[in-house]
Design a protein around this nucleic acid. Structure first.
Lengths: 344, 344
DNA sequence: CTGTTAGCGCATTCAA
DNA sequence: TTGAATGCGCTAACAG
């Protein structure tokens, strides 16, 4: 005398005068039952408004049709950075082809593992390396396939990314070779909200190493100002304004994300500073929207879309054949007109 | 003699010498068992690497901790528009507070219902009205709570949005009142990929009506050029270039999305056209990144973040109390320096 | 405070 | 081709 509201496979079977198995076949492998029974079952299903329950199906079949994408921060902050959107687009393309959906996982209450712990997914793409090991352990316990993006290649897990250290080195050299000695390095702020935040991410660490290598090589006694800025447009703009208003303002800006570069472009315009004559800017990402800027920023071309695409592809390989491999992607540096020698 | 690989609650219970219920309590309501048994259970769980299965839990509990967000197009195309990202951010903020995750649902093979059909979620936020009725039927069959965004207020379901017709009317009036008669209206391309695409969206229809009302009122025999453009940066730029290169180029541009306006800004710069002296631009959205442009585009301020936030909030009301209501949000028009009288 | 007993809704061997 | 039986892993009334 239960009233679930929704009809179950059992009720449908009774109504149609067949067994549950027959109904199951009707929905999953129609070729295994006769045309007539199929038609009858479907007709009654229609009438009853029966729809198989995805959760029950998932339990019985031992697979959901979902993969998770674990973000390094809260959704509201991460999606301020279009780079993440690009990644998501790439992942999405593959998932749709495979008829999978994407579950967006973020650190609930600052704990990464929470989300992964009870995510209804078959596999996970982990963005960034923040507390990767804890998350990876949960994945292994749950028997989930997983792949990381931008987490460095040192670990023993599948990772997709570029050689951040080298890219950063080359980018820094562009500024240094042009003669800049007063630099500002603009880093993406690691969220303070995350309890288990394992300090700055692998990516940032590697990039700093690259910058240091370039500095060392140039033997320059340059001043380097490091600062951390959020991904929000306002943050970038505010930071840029403040930096550029200094007495001895830096002549070369090294941004770790296009969104930051945009902030400097905006602030430079406000302050009447011409790029590149009075201010040189280099950055990471090279997002599509960068082509709207003038001059287009000199940038390491981070193929976000492709990265997401590759990560998803490798994850599916893991899911299907249980084998996949890390991919060190090539990168290019787009040299455009945003760098010039510093005015004397 | 089964080898699932992963330990189940049953095995754990046996190992610990307690019942399955005790284990369940240990993980869900620890206060209901003694400290000692709790400790013992958890210790053995640790040792065995036991983690409760979310799918099974979902089945038994009759609730997942997820809501779905149904996109009007494929992920790769939809996320080219930052407006969607803003929506997602708003939804995300609420979901994280409620400890829910977001499942990104997109029309698989062009069929909207497919994704909803077997999504492991408790509720759905439907973006845009494309084939809303079919989707809504599936939701009802599945007993899923749902809310729509930007789907018009005509239907009987909960919808979040602004009065698009009025907003569009006011925006058009700004151009017309400034004296513009050669206009170009730039619409977001409805995906051709979708089999069941029910023509253009409600939003676009309403906006067109608003424009028409403005035109009628002004009695102007102006020329209005309509065109549909994709959300990609390249598309917007290409379209803008082509429009602005015409012999009798329009003097007033009416964009239905900031991304399109950005394209016109880019093309105008390339062609040496000054905004607003030689070209006036009005648009919808007013995304955060618009503040980087100069002059900032005159725009209907579409509070994407807030919209997503409201939609999620209403959905949770529905989930918890089974009651919620549509919200017609206020909108503002940001009048900045991007409109001037047309040069004669 | 703890354990027993039923399911949750479906997929899937194995017989018939 | 069809059906009965069993299991997926967990939760939740209900007793004890």
């Amino acid at each position: 005398m239960k009233r679930t509201g929704r009809p179950t496979i059992k009720e449908l079977a009774e109504q149609a005068g067949v067994s549950k198995t027959a109904v199951s076949f009707a929905f999953n492998s129609p070729e295994r039952i006769s045309k007539e029974t199929y038609a009858r079952i479907m007709a009654i299903a229609q009438e009853l408004g029966y729809v198989p329950d995805p959760v029950a199906r998932g339990l019985a079949r031992r697979k959901t049709q979902c993969i998770g994408i674990l973000l390094p921060q809260s959704i509201a902050s991460v999606f301020q950075n279009p780079y993440i959107t690009e990644l998501l687009r790439g992942v999405g393309e593959v998932c749709e082809k495979e008829k999978f959906s994407i579950l967006v996982l973020s650190p609930l209450e600052g704990i990464f593992t929470h989300a992964v712990y009870n995510a209804v997914v078959d596999g996970v793409i982990i963005l960034g390396a923040a507390s990767a090991s804890a998350v990876q352990q949960v994945c292994r316990q749950r028997g989930l396939a997983y792949v990381t993006v931008d987490a460095g290649f040192s670990g023993d897990c599948i990772n997709i990314g570029i050689d951040e250290e080298e890219a950063s080195y080359q980018l820094a050299r562009i500024l240094l070779d042009a003669g800049h000695r007063r630099l500002c390095v603009c880093t993406l702020q690691p969220l303070s909200e995350t309890l288990e935040s394992s300090g700055s991410s692998e990516t940032i660490r590697h990039r700093r190493q690259g910058i240091q290598r370039a500095l060392d090589e140039c033997g320059a006694g340059g001043e380097v100002q490091y600062l951390e800025v959020g991904a929000a447009c306002e943050s970038a703009l505010a930071a840029a304004r403040s930096i550029l208003s200094q007495d001895q303002r830096p002549t070369g800006i090294f941004c770790m994300a296009d969104v930051h570069a945009y902030g400097f472009y905006g602030a430079a315009r406000e302050l009447g500073l011409a790029i590149p004559r009075e201010l040189s800017v280099v950055t990471f990402d090279n997002l599509p929207q960068s082509q709207l800027l003038h001059p287009r920023p000199t940038a390491v071309d981070q193929p976000g879309f492709q990265k997401g695409w590759l990560a998803a592809t490798e994850l599916f390989k893991l899911l299907e054949a249980d084998e996949a491999q890390s991919v060190v992607m090539d990168f290019q540096i787009l040299k455009t007109g945003s760098v010039a020698s510093p005015a004397l």
